[in-house]
Simulated assay, not measured.
Amino acid sequence: MLASWAAATAFLVPSEARSQPATAVPAAPEPDGGAPTPTTATPPPGTEGEPAAPSIAQPESTTPISRTIQDFERAPPPPTNVVYLQYGVAFTAEVLSSAGAICSNTTVPCILGTGGGITIRAGWRGTGSLYIGGAYALSKQDPNKLLRLAILQQARAEGRYYLMTGRDTEPYLMLGLGVAGYGNEWSVDTYGPAASLGAGIEAQVTRRTVVGVAVGYRVLHFNSFTDTSGADREAGIAQFVGLDLVLEQRDPIFTERKR
């Protein structure tokens, strides 16, 4: 009985239902507009549609920076055709070598001794080996308590001749001619001509700043005078050895055209 019922049911089911699969997968909804979305096939490797691989920049063949800096430091400075105004200050020691006739009176102490002070300079530095300028030196000397404030003043014209080395350190010879005065508290009790001869060395700290040291032999002639204690001082020549610690600046004035 059951077998006859199952056979009859199978015969009544429509053929379309029997032809559909057991599980139906719903189709994906179409985008707005009703048009189907086109399918783009991925091109195989090696075709025009393949994205280009990122390029790796190759380092350029250049000289290492450290080697370039070392070569620059070792190279001599280029020749200059600039004229400078060179000026500055120096700390000066005036060491008495011989007081001369000014201290020939043995009944009273010598009124002139060793001292120290400052020197102010300014001059013209050409493109070659010459420097021409002026200097004013002020120093406090030891008067053996005969003067309250013994001051030696010197004003002189100076010339330097540099030995051109092509480096930032240059030696030079120096010559000076001028006048000197000596007295108590800025007064001038005696004066006379002065001359100096020396040598020094100069080094560039920067392109415009220089430092140096110089040693000079100075000869000063003083006229006769009467000091504050009433003692007579004869005219004569005093000799000093000067030591300068120099700090100077260079400012360009103009540039000469190269021939």
Rank of each mutant, 00 (worst) to 15 (best):
T92S: 09
A3Q: 12
L177H: 05
A199W: 02
V246Y: 00
V210W: 00
A3R: 14
G242I: 05
P171A: 13
G178R: 01
T39P: 01
R156T: 08
E234M: 10
R156W: 03
P36D: 06
G46S: 12
A195N: 04
S224A: 15
Q239F: 05
S55E: 15
T209R: 08
S61M: 10
A6I: 14
E202G: 00
T106Q: 14
E158L: 11
G181N: 00
G192N: 04
R208I: 04
P252H: 05
V25G: 06
G159H: 07
R257L: 11
L130Y: 13
F11L: 09
K140A: 13
M174S: 14
G126E: 02
D227R: 07
T226D: 08
A8C: 03
A235I: 12
G49L: 06
G166Y: 11
F254P: 02
Q141C: 04
G198L: 02
E50L: 06
T47E: 11
Q20S: 09
D232N: 08
S196Y: 01
V25R: 11
S66I: 12
Y191H: 12
Q20D: 10
G176K: 00
D227A: 06
T62G: 09
P43I: 05
S97V: 11
Y131N: 02
E248K: 10
G88M: 02
F11V: 09
V13Q: 13
T107N: 13
W124C: 04
G34E: 10
L177S: 11
V219S: 07
P31L: 13
Q154C: 01
E50S: 07
G128M: 07
L177Y: 13
S139M: 06
P109L: 03
D168A: 13
S4C: 14
G212C: 02
L152K: 01
T119V: 11
P77G: 09
F240C: 01
P36I: 05
M164C: 05
A231K: 03
R148A: 14
E248S: 05
V219F: 05
R167T: 13
T92I: 06
Q249I: 05
C103P: 01
A90W: 00
